[in-house]
Amino acid sequence: MNRPTAIDLFCGAGGLSEGLRQAGYSIVAGNDIDPFAGATFVATHKEAYFLEGSIRDLDASDFLKATGLKKGELDCLAGGPPCQGYSVYNHQRGMHDERSHLFREYLRIVEGLMPKWLVMENVTGIMSAGEGEAFQGVLAGIKELGYNVEAQILRAEDYGIPQERRRVVFIANRIGLPIVWPERTHGEGLSPLTTIHDALSDLPSLSNGEDAGVCGYASEPKSDYQRELRAGSNAVYNHAAPRLGAINIERMQHIPQGGSWRDIPFDLLPAGMKRAKRSDHTKRYGRMKWDEQSCTVLTKCDVHWGAYIHPEQDRSITVREAARIQSFPDWFRFEGPRTEQYVQVGNAVPPMLGRKIGEAILFAESALADTRENELVASLG
C-alpha cells in the first residue's frame, strides 16, 4: 500500500514534515524562502523535491509538476506561514506587517492543489492580531474552498515534549470526515510530563564557547525520550556552546536552577535591567530546572531573552539541546551558520507534535475505511 502524500509549505528545516513522515506520510515536496533552512530540509528529506524561493513566485502547477501529482490527488498540504507578524514577542505586531498576509498565499496554493487534508500551524497571537482578522480570514478562506475546518490551541508538553509551547493548529478536509484531534498523552492523570533531565542529561558537558564537533554521548540513554531521539544516530551533532562574555559568566554563577535575573547582584545587572521591576522580564537570565520543562524555544536561545541557561553548566544551551527540547531526532543535522541553525530550530513545529497530528488524521481516514468495509459486509450478508 502506498504511503499517503504530503507537501509542506513554509517548511523551514522540516519539523512538521518530519512529524508527518513519522506518522506514515511520504513527503513529496517542500518550499521555503530561507536557503539555510532549505539546505537542512534537502539534507534530511532526500525523498522530497525542494522548491526554494518566495511562495509569491510559485504556483500550484509548480508543485504538481515537481511531484507528478494531479489536482485533487495530494493527501495533505501542511504549512506554517511565518508567524513573526502575529507573535507576542513582536511589539509592532499586526496586520500592517506584510508577513501577516502570507496565509493568503497558502490558500492560493490550496485552491490550485485541492488536497484532501490541510494542516496549518501558527502562534496563538494570530487569534488576536488585527482584532482577529487573520484568524477569521484563515477560517473563512478555507471554508470558501469547500473544506470543513476546525482550530485548536495545542500545548506541546501535553504530547511528551519537554517544553511549554502553545500553537494554534488548523485541521481541515474536503472529503466529509470529522476532524480528529490528537489526544493528550502527558500530564495530570496520564504519563508524567517530559523534563529537561529526560531530554538533555545524556549529552556531553561543555564549557562556555566550547565546540564539541561530532562527538559521542556522555552516557547510555537515561530516559525513553532520549532512547527515541537517539534512534538512528551514533553521534552528537550541532553541539557547540555560544561564547558569552566574562560578565555573563559571572552573572550565571549567582543563578540557581529555576532562578533568573533577580538572583544576580544589583551591581552586575545590565544597565537597562537595573531599572526593571521585580515583576518584569520573568524569564530573562533564567536557568533551567532538571525536573521541569523548558520555556518556549525561540529563534535565539539568548540568555537576555529567556531561560536558556543550562541547568548545571554556566553557558547557554546548544543547537542540539534546543533541538532535543523541540523533539528533533539526533540524526537530524542542521545546516548553515550557527545563528541560522537556532532560527531553524526555533521556527519549527516539534516533530513529535507533527506526528501526533498526522496520526490523528490517519485515524480519521482508517475509521472511514472500517465503516465502508462494514457497510460492504452488511450489504453482502
Rank of each mutant, 00 (worst) to 15 (best):
W261C: 00
C295N: 15
R166L: 02
R262S: 01
D158T: 02
I179T: 13
L77T: 10
D198S: 12
R284H: 05
T282D: 00
A231K: 15
V149H: 11
I361M: 14
K300S: 14
N234K: 12
E98D: 13
D59I: 00
V138G: 05
S191P: 00
Q253Y: 01
V343E: 12
E164A: 15
S61Q: 13
F334I: 04
W181P: 09
A240M: 03
V319P: 03
A48S: 12
G12Q: 08
F332S: 01
M1R: 04
L200K: 09
R320T: 12
A235W: 02
G336N: 03
G24V: 04
A241L: 09
G245K: 11
D263C: 06
V28E: 06
K222M: 10
G132V: 02
V349K: 06
L298F: 10
L368P: 00
A323V: 01
M120S: 15
H281G: 13
I142C: 06
E250M: 13
G94W: 03
E220C: 00
S207W: 03
E250D: 14
C83D: 11
M252C: 06
F135I: 04
F63I: 12
A212F: 02
D291R: 00
H254K: 02
M1I: 03
E105M: 02
K274M: 11
T318E: 04
E73G: 09
